[in-house]
Each structure stands twice: as structure tokens, then as C-alpha cells.
Design a protein around this nucleic acid. Structure first.
Lengths: 130, 130
DNA sequence: ATGGGTGCAAAGTGTTTGCAAGTAT
DNA sequence: ATACTTGCAAACACTTTGCACCCAT
């Protein structure tokens, strides 16, 4: 692995992700970064997201359409609102034994699993009350 | 809902999906369709995939990068091989109660969930033995 | 000073859409 | 005959890449 620098842009991107907890998309991260450093480019954001993921500092999750990013945390599941696209961590315990169970049944190596719930969040439910 | 026709192209696309069980991508479906009807276009494939999904005849699943399609079946989970991208149905019972459990804890309406395992399939494990 | 990083624009993927012609009903 | 569907090409959305310049080490 080549030596990696710690540029202002990379620090900025990482700090944005650690400070917000709404699982932003690359574009949302870009917009916030741009508001703090007008000259930053999308490519820099995308490149650094990839680097931070490969460094294990952030997590990239495929949910519905575009990827979402978040700071590392213990493994957990996600809920996506199909009305507003908001993403929340699901308060359901991570079931570590599922991997072993599937490995036994299939002979595959099972490294991890993702569980994504879909539905309507409380904000959107309120709005629907109108 | 407007009246929908049953064109040769739509039948072909549906039959391709029902006859293969490898969860093909739109592009793979297009290639097979093209081999049987050289003039079919990608747009026709994409449009019909969307129509078949909205008719509830096929299922569209977001796994890693591009969407995968399969004929309808009872709800089930998926395993994706991170080496060769093959997709398999996971022989793990669908846990219907998870939705209620999350709904109770959050107050959200929880409609469904997807569970995706990642690891190395047996084919790729064999190859690694070389 | 050196090689990784940046910003820009262009190119890549994967998917959707406008339109004129075709076809299932 | 009607209006849904097709094929084509162009447009879109999201992401990656080539390149010349920049800057962290």
C-alpha cells in the first residue's frame, strides 16, 4: 500500500462524514464540502470517499439508488424511507450467527450481511396526516 | 392503470427471466434477448423490466452495483459472491417478525426488508485451491 | 524534490426519455 | 382505428479517469 497523505480536502471530507449522522450521499458531502471550500471538486470528493473506505475509516452502503456514507461504527442495519429517502440506523441487534448458519448450509465463505428495511418514516407519516 | 399489451418482446424478456435462475442484470437479459431477436433494443429491455416489475411478475433486487432481476417467488434472502458476482438464494428462513419488531421500536411503517450476504461462493473457493 | 493529490473536463456506466414508425387489440 | 410499444439516438444521473499543476512529506 502506498503512503497516503492527509490533505485538507481529505480531512474536510472525513470530518463532514463523522459530524453528520444522516448517511449522506457523495453529492451531499460534496455540497457541504463546497460550502466550506468553494474550490473543491466532485472528483476530489469521490476519490477521497474511495480512499477513506479502503482505509476502513468510513463505510459505504448500497441501499436504494446512490451509495450512502457514514463513519465506521459497530455493524448495524438500516431503514430507508421510501417516501423521502432518509436513512436511519435500525435498533435491531446485529445477528452474527446468521453468517455461520448460512456458511454451514452452503459451504460458502460468508463474510458479512446487510439488512435493509424499507417503509415510511415518522416524518412522512405525519405529513400524510394532512 | 392503462391497458397493457403483450408484445413478443415482453414475452421474450419474461421467458428469459423465468428460465434462468442466476439473477441476471438488465444487460445480461438484453444480450440473451438479442441472441433470440437481433433487433431488440436496450430501451425495450429496460422499459419492459420496469413494466414487469410494476405488474408484480418479476422482482428487482438491489445487491451490489447493478440491479438484478428474477421471477416472483416467496420472499427470500440473497448471497452475492464478491469474487465472481454470482447471486444465489440464501437457504435461510425469511423472518417476517423483524418488520413488526422494528415498527414497534421506531413508530415507522415497515413494509419489508432485504438481507444480503456477501462472501465467496464454492466455485471461487475451488479455484483458489490452485 | 518527489510522488501523491487536486481541479477541471472528458469519458465511462447504467438507465431513462423524446420521437416517428410499428403493431396488438 | 386507436393508443400502447418499439428501436434509435440523445439525454440523464452517478462515478471514474487523464492530465497538468500543486503541495504534503
Amino acid at each position: 500500500m502506498k503512503l497516503q497523505r492527509n490533505t485538507k480536502q481529505r480531512q474536510l471530507i472525513y470530518s463532514i462524514i463523522s459530524n453528520r449522522h444522516d448517511h449522506p450521499t457523495a453529492e451531499q458531502i460534496y455540497l457541504e464540502a463546497k460550502s466550506k471550500n468553494a474550490k473543491i471538486s466532485r472528483s476530489t470528493v469521490y476519490r477521497n470517499l474511495n480512499i477513506l473506505v479502503s482505509q476502513g475509516k468510513i463505510i459505504q452502503t448500497k441501499l436504494l439508488t446512490t451509495d450512502r456514507f457514514e463513519a465506521v461504527a459497530k455493524e448495524h442495519y438500516h431503514f430507508v424511507c421510501s417516501k423521502c429517502d432518509a436513512v436511519f440506523d435500525a435498533p435491531i441487534d446485529y445477528n452474527q450467527t446468521l453468517n455461520n448458519s448460512l456458511a454451514e448450509k452452503t459451504g460458502f465463505v460468508v463474510l458479512k450481511h446487510r439488512l435493509i428495511f424499507e417503509g415510511i418514516c415518522s416524518e412522512c407519516l405525519k405529513k400524510a396526516d394532512n
